[in-house]
Design a protein around this nucleic acid. Structure first.
Length: 569
RNA sequence: CGGGAUGUAGCGCAGCUUGGUAGCGCACCUCGCUUGGGACGAGGGGGUCGCACGUUCAAAUCGUGUCAUCCCGACCA
């Protein structure tokens, strides 16, 4: 490809509306153009990167026995009504009507359609197991799209769905997919960590997220991991081994005391001169429009996903101050659990509360708390707390560390969550009708591209792993008007192209500095510069990753490129 | 959904306080010159100042509304 013909425009400055480095670089280096919030055009450079990632995915998925298909992006409400998600999915599902006033939606995922397709085709256990996948655009109307391609509304996803007759066979496939994912990301030049994660409101299922660990804010997931063993988990799922320590507030008897202006735990702890872990904190929520109080030790925080799982709730939000009065007949900042109508308000106690004695508790009256309180008999405890760094690994007991992760893939054991309500069944050996046992497996293709940039960039631009770079090599004649330089550059370009190397020749009449800046920004893994040293028969061979430059003859440079590219594939 | 900020040429910005012919840098076009890390000179093209309504002789500028974008937060009592 001639640089003069490549459809790309690099910018001298970073765009103003981008925050994440991947977003800034994708825009500045001319890979993407924004059309609307969270909706981007993939320019030719990006298209090539996406194609490379997609091809790696295809090769690995096909090798694992999966088959590719393509399902509709616009879907009728009907299939979603069947699974029950037309009601439940919420605003992320972009709905619209066709000219006949039929309700339609843009696909955010494809469980419904694949279940319906397989339901029509697969009637016998003999046709199972089966794994089908597609690489396709998805649309999710996110509350707050941000960070460019890391959280767009329209994005490219590989989604696979597997169908089985037994849980054991699903687990076998789940493991195959796990291995497949690891090698897909490795081949993309990305190291990933498989972390345990929450699997959504309908519990019981197993799922893992494949995370690229980063130390920036753009990783939207907190990941806890153990340096001693292999344990790692998303914060929404992580558990820690906390000894049920006894925390004693040291009050002799239960009584109500004045605690003016103590709306936060810190203020209250300071006022009463007790540790936060001697205060029983009440956090009030509305879960699926029903009031809930989560009781938790003052130094811990509620993990809402865990709470939702305990409640089997789909939606949860903190209670507003006026609702605290309405539902709990209490006062924000001074909530207790003792005076509520238990038939109307669900009270959930965290495990950490178990060891609390003579603690401090809200009195349901403004500016008053109860001190020296103790728990009643027969309370059930659940794990609804967020793990904190430094708490202990549930598997080996060593301290847990926290980091940020970008979720690029996720594998999930669905069971019969979709097949059952949708009536998608096969006939087993005994002639009985059984719903399929399903798994699903996703990879964010466009997000993977962005994650790679988050991981691999420097002050000058993108530093692509060669496996997913848009081109392998950029050939730069310093002065295109110099006959020798131009001739040699073109010869190198022709020879490399013939060898199947993806090369760009920067045939623009710009000065060398412009070409070098663009080469670094775009992120070509290798640059061959043909300049003055061609008088001595030498060109410069430079790798982007380490900036190492060597002077070689054109033929040696060509050989080096071929070696470098072959080694990576 | 709440709070904050910003909308002026493809990109980055100034102008707005104090209303009076819409500007700068980059990019783009032409010519010259230059060719090893975003050169230089001369000339040129491109914007209904987000949109609507209002105030005014006159609005990018003042007022009201609206839309969009970005950031933060989404209540831990």
């Amino acid at each position: 490809m001639k640089m003069s013909k490549l459809f790309v425009q690099t910018l001298r400055e970073f765009p103003n509306d981008a925050e994440a480095i991947s977003h800034k670089l994708l825009v500045r280096a001319g890979y993407i153009k924004k059309l609307a919030n969270g909706i981007y055009t993939y320019m030719p450079l990006a298209q090539r990167v996406l194609a490379k990632i997609s091809n790696i995915i295809r090769e690995e998925m096909n090798a694992s026995g999966a088959q590719e298909l393509t399902m509709p992006f616009v879907q009728p409400a009907e299939v979603w009504q069947k699974s029950g998600r037309w009601q439940k999915y919420g605003k992320e599902l972009l709905r619209c009507k066709d000219r006949h006033d039929n309700e339609m939606c843009l696909a955010p995922t494809h469980e419904e359609v694949i279940t319906s397709v397989v339901g029509e085709v697969v009637n016998s256990y003999k046709q199972l197991p089966l794994n089908l996948y597609q690489i396709q655009t998805k649309f999710r109307d996110e509350i707050r799209p941000r960070f460019g391609l890391l959280r767009g509304r329209e994005f490219i996803m590989k989604d696979a769905y597997s169908f089985h007759t037994t849980q054991e066979d699903l687990e076998r496939e789940y493991e195959v997919m796990g291995k497949t994912y690891t090698s897909i990301f490795n081949r993309c030049g990305l190291e990933t960590t498989a972390v345990q994660s929450d699997s959504g409101a309908i519990g019981g299922a197993v799922s893992h997220e494949y995370m690229v660990l980063v130390d920036t804010m753009v990783g939207e997931n907190d990941v806890f991991y153990c340096k001693n063993c292999s344990y790692s988990a998303n914060s929404n799922h992580a558990i820690s081994k906390l000894p049920i320590e006894t925390t004693d507030g040291g009050f002799d008897k239960e009584e109500i005391v004045d605690t003016p202006n103590t709306k936060t735990i810190e203020e209250l702890a300071a006022f009463l001169k007790v540790n936060a872990n001697c205060i029983l904190k009440a956090v009030a929520y509305i879960a699926d429009s029903r009031p809930v109080i989560a009781m938790i030790r003052g130094d811990k925080e509620v993990e809402e996903t865990k709470l939702m799982n305990v409640l089997n709730a789909l939606e949860i939000r903190p209670m507003e101050n006026n609702e605290v009065k309405e539902f709990l007949n209490s006062e924000a900042g001074f909530i207790s659990y003792r005076n509520v109508d238990k038939s109307k308000v669900r009270v959930v106690f965290d495990n950490t509360v178990k060891g609390m004695k003579n603690f401090v508790l809200g009195a349901d009256i403004k500016d008053k708390h109860i001190v020296g309180a103790n728990l009643e008999e027969g309370i059930e405890f659940y794990d609804i707390s967020l793990v904190k760094e430094g708490e202990f690994c549930p598997e080996c007991g060593k301290p847990l560390y926290i980091t940020r992760g970008i979720e690029v893939g996720n594998i999930f054991q669905l069971g019969t969550k979709y097949s059952e309500p949708m009536g998608a069944c096969y006939t087993d050996e005994k002639g009985q009708l059984k719903p399929y046992i399903m798994g699903c497996y996703g990879i964010g293709v466009s997000r993977t591209m962005a994650a790679a940039i988050e991981k691999y960039h420097d002050d000058f631009g993108i530093v692509w792993p060669i496996e997913i770079a848009p081109y392998h090599v950029d050939i730069v004649p310093v002065n295109i008007d110099d006959e020798t330089q131009s001739k040699v550059a073109y010869e190198i370009y022709e020879k490399l192209t013939k060898e199947g190397i993806e090369a760009v020749i920067d045939d623009r009449s710009d000065r060398a500095g412009v070409k070098f800046k663009d080469a670094d920004l775009i992120g070509f893994p290798i640059r061959i510069t043909v300049g003055k040293t061609i008088q001595e028969g030498l060109v410069e061979y430079k790798t982007r990753k380490d900036g190492v430059m060597t002077k070689l003859t054109p033929d040696e440079a060509i050989e080096n490129v071929i070696k470098y590219v072959k080694k990576s594939s």
